[in-house]
Amino acid sequence: MRKIALAAVWFLIVQAAAYNAFGAVGKTYNQMVQKHGALAQVPLGRVAGAKEAARYRARGARGYSFNAGRFKVYAIFNSNNVCFREFTLHNRTLPDETLLLGRLAGTAPKVLWRVPRRAIALQYGSGADAVILRTFGQPGDLSAEANSKALEP
């Protein structure tokens, strides 16, 4: 009985670890639904530039939006139902980095570039795990985007 209980606890820990393995970027569609509830599908043209949207469409990507606290979050999934890009637009504040980065939040990023007071690009993780977080905007009108190049379609 005790072994079963320990196994159950271990199972839950592993599941929790898997669940938190990524923030939104890197999560599957099902994990996102589990975390945030139903996702609303949006046209790719609303979540990507015209050229990107056409490319993503041809490769089976899909766009969704959902609410996380006071943020409306947009997410794009590849044909394997894995989120490779997530962003928030035109908010008064930047979201907590855990919303977009998950377990990578809190790790030391590498500064790719910075426009003083207006934008910054940070790389979290490395290699296939690398996620680029980019923020942009003016005080009170801020946008943030996380993107995994490895997961892009």
Binding site: G45, R46, V47, A48, G49, W113, P116
Partner: peptide, 21 residues
Amino acid sequence: IWNIQSGYLLFGNTILDLGNM
């Protein structure tokens, strides 16, 4: 510090200029 140099233009096909936004 900045990993960026002055005098450049930044561009990109980004989320920051989407459709009718």
